[in-house]
Design a binder for these strands. Structure first.
Length: 478
RNA sequence: GGUUCCAUCGUCUAGGGGUCUAGGACGUGGCCCUCUCAAGGCUAAAACACGGGUUCAAAUCCCGUUGGAACCA
């Protein structure tokens, strides 16, 4: 049988990191075995509908390269792929389930029973619903008479239910622990669980991948499959992605979503790579993986059982690796938006080359290049550096020596500038640092810069560099 | 409270009875390189939650305790 997995997000308007990881594992399970990855939108909960939310789902998956084989936009043999367009199907199966004895009509529903939390009146929790005793014929009559009803699951079994999970192994749960939940609400819409089961079966999903919070309700799902005479899917429950040991990642706590991270200058490829390793390991010491590589080596056996804490530090490091692995042109293209505010004519190619090994997230560019537009106000003491053996006096001398030399330079390349300045140092019996350090400060006004004196000179160009050295000399004179 | 699940450096993890004086990565400290800062190279500190078993031998298997999480109340 062909492997078929599905990603079934609710259109909430953002892509949660934990959900994206679940999608990734679903995708990888399918693709590592030549199967299909299906996208289904679970918009049953009308209250949570957010305009444009499905687009975010589409864009995110596309951006990381997780292309789906069937879905709302491209169709497929098992559509429609949006739950709100499948209402009639759920109702039909709900009634069928009643006929098959897997559920019953219930008339004692309170109106607050169907709120988004799925809160149930306590009377139904563990106790038998009195409506179960109503003969089916009578129930049908009442429905025909227009009485509001819900379809409620029957849990008639006793003893323990055993099911197998790919990650957690065999799990036993007592049927007494299960409650007879609503499957079809009085407005005719299915509950989340019920729609899930019906769709997964009709769409021939082979592996259901979901958070381990669903472990304890899995027997309820299986009971529905059983009542219909269907074969349950293979379950792959994955541990949670945590913010810290106590709290899982959630948008509510202001934790980063995929788009937040991208906005902060993280590369989608790096995010994907990082989350793949949160709860899964390749069995080797390789850490950098493209999606294609993951498709080749993924296996569910190496999925972990315990929750993983999302560590922004490691993501940041990994993002730095991805940035450094970019070609010079690719990096330059990504950096362009950050250069927009600079009006002086700079050598952006040289700037990008200097920046690329120095940043770990794209938005670190801003703090690195703030001096390009204008030299900040700086203290003369900046020219004092013990290791470089410089003082404002030495700097004054150095800049006086350097200025006329630089004015004559025609080859404004890094190599040539470096040789020229070294020459100045040697012929005046100064150390390299005593020339280079003051020049760098004069050009930038900053203690640390992306690149040394000559690299900055190349970035700024000859005219601007000369101008800045002249300005610095005036400051040192005054 | 009931049920289920989980437990190796601060974090992600390797390990599945002897090869473990427990390996790798992030982060942290140090050194080297170096026109500052990075990058790169080297290096250090850092963990088997606890207690019982089983066994010649336990991080590894079993039981309990503790801690945490989820679901249901």
């Amino acid at each position: 049988m062909k492997t078929r997995t599905r990603f079934a997000p609710s259109p909430t308007g953002y892509m949660h990191i934990g959900n994206l990881r679940t999608a990734l594992y679903e995708y990888l399970i399918a693709k590592s075995t030549g199967g299909d990855f299906i996208l289904r939108i679970e918009d049953t909960d009308q209250k949570r509908f957010v305009e444009g939310a499905t687009d975010i789902i589409f864009q995110t998956l596309k951006r990381v390269g997780m292309n789906w084989d069937e879905g709302p936009d491209i169709g497929g043999d098992f559509g429609p792929y949006i739950q709100s367009e499948r209402r009639a199907i759920y109702a039909e199966y709900a009634h069928k389930l009643v006929e098959l004895g897997g559920a019953h009509y219930c008339f004692c529903a309170h109106k607050d029973e169907e709120d988004e939390n799925g809160d149930e009146p306590q009377t139904h929790a563990k106790l038998k619903d009195p409506c179960k005793l109503i003969p089916l014929e009578e129930a049908k009559r009442r429905i025909a008479a227009g009485e509001p009803f819900v379809v409620r699951q029957n849990i008639n079994k006793k003893g323990t239910s055993v099911f197998h999970d790919v990650v957690y192994g065999d799990i036993e749960i007592d049927y007494d622990e299960l409650d007879e939940g609503v499957l079809l609400k009085s407005d005719g819409l299915p509950t989340y669980n019920f729609a899930n089961v019906i769709d997964d079966h009709l769409m021939q999903i082979s592996h259901v991948v979901r958070g381990n919070e669903y472990i304890s309700s899995t027997p309820k799902y299986n009971l529905i499959y059983e009542a219909f005479g269907w074969t349950p899917p293979i379950y792959v429950h994955v541990p949670q992605v945590m913010k810290d040991a106590q709290h899982k990642l959630s948008k509510r706590n202001g934790d980063a979503s995929f788009q937040d991270l991208v906005a902060k200058g993280y590369l989608p490829e790096a995010i994907l790579n990082y989350i793949a390793l949160l709860g899964w390991n390749p069995g080797s010491e390789q850490e950098i993986f493209s999606l294609q590589e993951l498709e080749k080596c993924f296996s569910t056996e190496r999925l972990n059982k315990s929750p993983a804490i999302f560590d922004i530090n490691k993501l940041t490091w990994m993002n730095g690796c991805y940035i450094r692995n970019l070609s010079a042109d690719e990096f330059d293209a990504l950096a362009q938006p950050y250069y927009k505010n600079i009006t002086t004519s700079i050598n952006t190619k040289a700037l990008s080359a200097a920046l690329q090994p120095r940043i770990e997230t794209l938005n670190q560019i801003a703090e690195q290049i703030d001096f390009l537009q204008q030299v900040p106000d700086y203290d003369m003491e900046l020219y004092t550096n013990k290791k470089m053996k410089t003082t404002p006096e030495i700097a004054h001398l150095a800049l006086q020596l350097v200025l006329p030399t630089l004015q004559k330079v025609t080859d404004w390349s890094n190599d040539n500038l470096f040789n020229v300045l070294k020459e100045v140092a040697i012929s005046n019996e100064l150390k390299n640092g005593q020339i280079l350090y003051p020049v760098r400060i004069a050009l930038s006004g900053k203690e640390t810069t992306p690149g040394g004196a000559t690299e900055l000179a190349v970035i700024l160009g000859k005219d601007e560099s000369i101008k800045r050295i002249q300005t610095a000399l005036q400051k040192l004179n005054g």
